[in-house]
Write a protein that binds this DNA or RNA. Structure first.
Length: 322
DNA sequence: AACACACCCAACCGCCCACCA
DNA sequence: TTGGTGGGCGGTTGGGTGTGT
């Protein structure tokens, strides 16, 4: 026994809304409110499904909606919250005034996901790709690790190709000014040969290292193995060129008129050495609760996979939650 | 200029859950 | 307790538009 449809499908109009329909719906809701969506199209003289009316109102016509571009600040908030909630778009949207879940979802799927991928970060787990590759190495014994790494590389193929080859983005390797002088516009362009070579290197290193130092790749590590161990492998099996002089810091992610911010530039760094890896490296050096560990706690940023909500600046939250 | 491809985003679909009689 | 209903949600689609060749 299925649910009865919310309307007679054959008698309702579908597709794009006209200005006239928008006006009818808006004026009806202005007078009568939104108490019963099933009755609204009928009473408003619209040949639309009630659900369609609700969506049109909530996603487009509502007077409190913003129709402007997402700001850097909003984007950062989305990424932060996505790292906590995943695809709970309504929860995320609730923190951004004037944005709907549909807006947030669309923006994520069309822009933010690519931005993160372009930065070498898996948009699902919010971990760097190299970190994920390292997780594989810490979980499986050779030769499975090498095989799975190859498979994982296949899974990330689109991201990797996007990262390395997409012409319009013209990925920029951002290095410290100390290293580059004042020229911060150095570009590294990869070609197919380079991609293949990178891929081969990964496979080779997995196999070779496992052969030479099998004890380095524990066979029974869980996916929740310590970050320190993972970080060491992340460094060891880093897919992309590592530039230890660069890190994403909270400051670099702030919404300032700072063109040097990797976020505002919306470009790829070509490095997977995220601050998380950097932090983990410090963790490894200081196993106990040292100054470095404290520093790590203070360095929570949007790419920290262990990000917790209470680290969010209160200003970012539209509807602070318990 | 014409075509192909990529991208964006409004709209739809179907599932789920809370509420109520 | 149960079934009907409205509304919310996330995933997906497809048409319009932009861009490259």
């Amino acid at each position: 026994m299925g649910r009865i449809p919310c309307c007679e499908k054959e008698n309702v109009k579908r597709g794009q809304w006209t200005i006239e329909e928008d006006n009818k719906l808006s004026s009806y809701i202005a007078q009568h409110g939104t108490c019963n969506w099933r009755l609204i199209p009928k009473n408003a003289g619209l040949q639309r499904c009630g659900k369609s009316c609700r969506l049109r109102w909530t996603n487009y016509l509502r007077p409190d909606l913003k129709h402007s571009q997402f700001s850097d600040s909003e984007e950062q908030t989305i990424v932060k919250l996505h790292s906590v909630f995943g695809n709970r778009w309504s929860l995320i949207a609730a923190q951004l005034s004037g944005r709907t879940d549909n807006d947030v979802k669309n923006h994520w799927n069309t822009k933010l996901r690519k931005k993160l991928s372009g930065m070498g970060i898996d948009p699902v787990t919010h971990k760097s790709f190299s970190h994920l590759m390292a997780e594989i190495a810490t979980t499986l014994a050779p030769p499975q690790a090498a095989h799975l790494a190859e498979a994982a590389l296949g899974c990330f193929k689109d991201e990797v190709l996007h990262l390395l080859t997409k012409k319009p983005i013209n990925f920029r390797c951002q290095q410290s000014t100390a290293e580059l002088g004042n020229d911060t516009n150095n570009y590294i362009n990869y070609n197919q040969e380079e991609i293949d070579r990178t891929s081969d290197n990964i496979k080779l290193r997995f196999s070779k290292d496992a052969e030479e130092e099998p004890e380095m790749i524990p066979s029974n590590k869980s996916w929740n193995s310590t970050a320190a161990t993972s970080a060491s492998f992340a460094m060891q099996y880093s897919v992309f060129p590592t530039m230890s002089t660069f890190q994403y810091s909270p400051a670099s992610m702030c919404n300032k008129e700072d063109d040097a911010s990797p976020w505002s530039q919306s470009v790829c760094t070509g490095s997977t050495f995220t601050s998380m890896d950097h932090q983990n490296e410090k963790l490894e050096e200081n196993v106990d609760d040292s100054e470095a560990t404290k520093e790590i706690r203070n360095l929570s940023n949007i790419f920290n996979p262990y990000y917790v909500l209470w680290d969010l600046p209160a200003d970012d939250l539209n509807n602070p939650m318990v």
